[in-house]
Design a binder for these strands. Structure first.
Lengths: 254, 254
DNA sequence: TCTGGTAATTACTCCGACATATTACAGGAT
DNA sequence: ATCCTGTAATATGTCGGAGTAATTACCAGA
């Protein structure tokens, strides 16, 4: 049987159409399938308890080999989204089994229309963790950390948050703070959430003007960390998170 | 070529030896391989940048099919531990790419001799998150939440933490608090960390006596949450985390 | 000697068929 | 009505080969 459906394959040996048939999220075939299924699950298209038809049936439906399908399922299983047992099929697990903090799961959750409640949960978590991180950073930062933060701040000023370079500088700034905490667990957590959330706001942030100039608020955080003032650093970071929340809320509402 | 080495296979059709050849962590073959490799990476046996020989060579070395090996690699890839590219082989990624908060990764990290620094990081994170969770729980709990907490508390009293039933009640208590926050992200995070950490202490906690009776401290948390006193709840929970830290520290030192 | 392009090697990627084992389900026995 | 057991369905494990992509080494030209 010769495959004619080019839906997911990358064999574009002579097609004059689009240059990149799938390629989007996962460069690999099984990655693309995992992405597709992951988004379907996160978007509620498959509810917990639902079964993803049979392995063979599904693989045929997607026009891919069972190997590719199985490897995709392994990825989803590793993230706690599904579980497959002989005879029973592959079932979507209850939501409390999902690794909601996995970067890819987060990305899938935010790919479509993200659940408002979930976004709220995420920001609540950020509001807890990031000020505490700023507090630790104020206590543990060294000269190098401060230099990196300062450079990032300067880059933010130059490019503004309307440009990609500016947003990259923003990420660098926050990352530098996280690094200064000397806590890998904290860094992993915040990096995951931050990446997903910022990516959304950036994506949805069309021509909308920012609510207010964010630079002074960032400077306040930097000054407190540089001064070693843990309490002030935490409070200033709290302001930043609130600002991001407002920003995201208005972006999602608009 | 007939496979003779029973190292990882479950074909025990007539061997009078051990009843369970691998079976330990992952019931599936690829799960067992992933567990094995995951532990090897987390324990530092493979350092970031190291390459896991070739796919075929490795699969032969483990006496498993390439499919099983590949599926195991997919799991590790999904958790950000490795990355494999054509010609280059499968390399261990730098530590900051790992999903350190993934339940399985956490389990692997704690399976061998856990890194002291990492344990410290995790407790620092707990010390940040759990009091905040208690604060939210005090504000949002309803009658059902309180009833479940009360029941768990009673069970803890009955069985004491020396028994498995008592520890299960302890987990139920903390889970009830997390549930009362109505925040899925928070719940996922704390469940992952708590499971890994508690599992270790339980495992290492041979005949050692507990430093002090933990029940009153738990009661204080419950009372504050029941009264809706957010501030007191947070402080009482802080005490609990400190207690757990001491407990773990002495267990790891001894 | 240095730079650039080209070819070959190497390893991953995907495939489909076969063998196996576990499980759900139904029908019969107690 | 409950328990047990046999059977069928289905996922898992295995295999080897064809295809593809990237790194490396080599060679030609400047």
């Amino acid at each position: 049987m010769v495959k004619e459906n080019p839906s997911l394959h990358r064999d574009e040996t002579e097609n004059g159409g689009a240059a990149k048939p799938v390629r989007g999220p996962g460069r690999r075939l099984h990655g693309a399938i995992a992405h597709k299924l992951g988004m379907a699950i996160l978007s509620g298209q498959y509810a917990p308890g639902d079964v993803l038809s049979g392995e063979v049936a599904f693989a045929e439906e997607l026009e891919v080999s069972r190997s590719a399908y199985r490897e995709a399922i392994q990825v989803l299983t590793a993230k706690g989204l599904v579980e497959s047992r002989p005879k029973a099929g592959t079932r979507v697990l209850p939501r409390n089994r999902w690794n909601l903090l996995d970067p890819e799961v987060l990305a899938w959750a935010f790919a479509g229309e993200p659940d408002i409640q979930f976004v709220r949960d995420l920001f609540e978590l950020r509001a807890i963790v990031e000020p505490a991180a700023a507090r630790l950073a104020a206590q543990r930062r060294d000269k190098d950390d401060l230099r990196i933060m300062k450079d990032a701040l300067a880059a933010m000023r130059r490019h503004t948050l309307a440009t990609e370079a500016g947003r990259a500088a923003d990420r660098d700034f926050h990352n530098a703070i996280l690094n200064a905490t000397r806590n890998d667990a904290l860094l992993t957590l915040t990096a995951s959430i931050g990446a997903a959330v910022n990516w959304t706001t950036q994506y949805k942030q069309r021509a909308r003007a920012l609510p207010r100039n964010p630079i002074p608020d960032h400077v306040r955080v930097y000054d407190a960390i540089a001064a070693g003032d843990a309490q002030t650093a935490a409070e200033a970071m709290g302001v930043l998170v609130d600002l991001a929340l407002e920003d995201t809320a208005s972006a999602m509402a608009g």
